[in-house]
Design a protein around this nucleic acid. Structure first.
Length: 561
RNA sequence: UGGGGUGUAGCCAAGUGGCCCAAGGCACCGGAUUUUGAUUCCGGCAUUCCCAGGUUCGAAUCCUGGCACCCCAGCCA
């Protein structure tokens, strides 16, 4: 038996679930993906989405999409819409399990009342500074709030009045009564409700008090019957509080929180806060700028859901701090696109090539395969003529021996057309070549060599007669540093790559590169994978480079891509 | 001498005391095929698992002691 490659990768969370199932701790698996709608989803969220939805799928359980919307100041409908679109695009379906933490505000309120009644929560009227000061430090215990001894009746009365809008923002908070000397700061009477007179994206103006994350999350999990609440490492310290809340109210069940390490990708940032800065400061065009590691940016760049899911599978789930190489993601995109995408020819930096012995007004039509290794993908026609364009990089006045392209006196194949020999060139006032001349060998139609002669170089071309002008966006990594946010001394924006976007406005593409309403993917032969930009129009063809082809030649030569 | 975590190749990662002189992927280095210097294919790539002791017939896996790194003092999540 061969090893199945459809087997989901083993990881410690799946092992935990296997044990829970085997020991009958749970009957079926329920997970959730709980984004806060305060920004767009990024590749790090994709890891969590694939984990949570992937586990639900593999174990035939369920996964909720739940908006963790307890802080109305930062949250917006734009983000809840975008998040849903991104999760769907990645290929996951929450069916009828779309929820908001704010759907539970009334229940949460009742749980808070329970806590007050059992003397496990109190209204504290200290201001922010005082609360902070009395919390103590990492090495020193905190001090009890003077309001800690308020009676149940007094607390109840105050809490109800907080809800009724009697108090200004910050006047009072509700705190859990735990232990001000706990070595875990989260257990030092954490705030669980605060007053915020703020319009909420989902509940409107119904509430003016909002529950905090630590109180909301565990209870939302319990209400939904989540079995395994998967979150990132920074919440490890919060687990005792997660468990405390569930142990001290009449929660329907007690989900288990399990933490895993978040994704770090080199040469970019995976933090909503930092990405928001790039958007707000205008360093990129928006959340869906193709240079952004956001799901919407990657989509517009031409990355596929398949490649992203594959990436998430391959990086694994552990508790180790990691930094994944961007080249892994890039290679998986190539791997996904290579077998399924049509080949086309496009010249990014054109220079004119005149075939001097070709008839002036002849335009031959050739069939060219859409995929050289997959005949079943069919063919398209390409037009040949006397005047063509080729890539400037494919010609050198004085080429080295190993340059398998065009140079004076050299023979080269024009892909799927003819073998041509360079006979001369013109230069402009700067000494740069401006026109190249060649002759073609009529016996080599289609690029074949009936005499069996070897022609090492094959270059791409487009006919001037029917080639179409396009604007091509060449993208490169957004940052010049591996870990742009890794230094406390320097702002991450100092490491922005000034050449992350190059716009080529005179590219010539073959006419079969037509723009549809949705993103179309191509491989431009010898160049890379490209896609039409969603903002392209019939009069202005805009094409994004997803990723270049692997290029061992220029890598060896140390040439710049 | 606050608490919570993590340490297996350049980057991920399996491994849960004997089949480990450590799986797999990416990267890298050869070599074959090639009308994309692409793809594909074949081969190579940790006597060693943060370090030092110990237990054991046997340790990456157990014990003891170090070391390094990450997270926590929002009325953010």
């Amino acid at each position: 038996m061969s090893i199945s490659n459809t087997q989901p990768p083993a990881n410690f969370i799946r092992q935990r679930i296997d044990i829970d199932l085997a020991e009958n701790q749970i009957k079926n698996v329920v997970t959730r993906f709980p984004p806060e709608p305060n920004g767009y989803l990024h590749i790090g969220h994709a890891k969590s989405i694939c984990l949570n939805f992937g586990i639900a799928k593999d174990y035939e359980g369920h996964c909720f999409l739940r908006f963790d919307d307890t802080n109305p100041e930062k949250e917006a409908m734009e983000f809840v819409k975008a998040i849903q679109e991104d999760v769907k695009w990645l290929g996951f379906d929450w069916e009828d399990r779309l929820r908001h933490a704010s759907d539970y505000f009334e229940q949460l309120f009742q749980y808070a009342v329970e806590l007050i009644k059992s003397e496990k929560a109190y209204v504290c009227s200290l201001d922010g500074d005082a609360i902070r000061q009395m919390r103590g430090t990492l090495t020193e215990p905190g001090q009890d709030s003077p309001y800690r001894k308020r009676t149940v009746d007094e607390n109840l009365d105050l809490f109800l009045r907080m809800r009724d809008g009697e108090f200004k923002d910050g006047a009072h908070v509700l705190r859990a009564k735990i232990d001000m000397s706990s070595p875990n700061l989260n257990m030092r009477d954490p705030i669980i409700y605060r007053v915020r007179h703020q319009h909420h994206q989902n509940t409107g103006d119904t509430w003016c008090i909002y529950p905090m994350y630590d109180f909301t999350h565990c209870l939302s999990d319990a209400i939904e019957g989540i079995t395994h609440s998967l979150c990132t490492l920074e919440f490890e310290d919060h687990r005792p509080l997660y468990d405390w809340v569930l142990d001290n109210v009449s929660a329907p069940c007690h989900p288990q929180q399990i933490e895993f390490s978040r994704l770090t990708l080199n040469y970019t940032v995976t933090s909503k806060r930092l990405l928001a800065q790039l958007v707000n400061d205008g360093h990129v065009e928006g959340w869906d700028d193709p240079r952004m590691p956001t799901i919407s940016g990657l989509r517009r760049r031409g990355f596929t859901p398949e490649a992203i899911r594959d990436f998430c599978d391959r990086i694994g789930i552990t508790k180790k701090y990691n930094q994944i190489e961007m080249t892994l993601l890039e290679n998986l995109v190539r791997e996904d696109l290579d077998p399924k995408v049509n080949r086309r020819m496009a010249v990014l930096n054109p220079i004119k090539l005149v075939v001097t012995n070709y008839p002036d007004d002849l335009h031959e039509i050739f069939d060219a395969p859409n995929h050289p290794n997959k005949p079943e993908m069919g063919t398209r026609t390409i037009e040949f003529g006397k005047e063509l364009v080729i890539e400037r990089d494919d010609f050198m006045i004085d080429p080295p021996r190993k340059f398998f392209r065009m140079g004076p006196g050299r023979e080269v194949r024009l892909r799927y057309a003819y073998i041509v020999t360079c006979t001369g060139f013109d230069v402009d006032e700067n000494g740069e070549p401006s026109v190249i001349y060649c002759t073609y060998d009529p016996e080599t139609k289609g690029g074949n060599t009936p005499d069996g002669r070897k022609v090492k170089g094959t270059i791409h071309w487009v006919s001037s007669h029917d080639g179409q002008v396009a604007t091509v966006h060449l993208y490169d990594r957004l940052f010049t540093e591996e870990n742009p946010a890794g230094s406390k001394a320097r702002d991450f924006k100092d490491h922005l790559n000034p050449e992350s976007l190059r716009v080529l406005s005179n590219a010539i593409v073959e006419p079969s590169v037509v723009q549809g309403t949705s993103i179309e993917h191509f491989q431009f032969e010898r160049l890379g994978y490209f896609c039409t930009d969603p903002k392209t129009s019939t009069t202005d063809l805009v094409i994004n480079r997803t990723i270049s082809l692997r290029d061992t030649w220029s890598a060896q030569k140390g040439h710049k891509k």
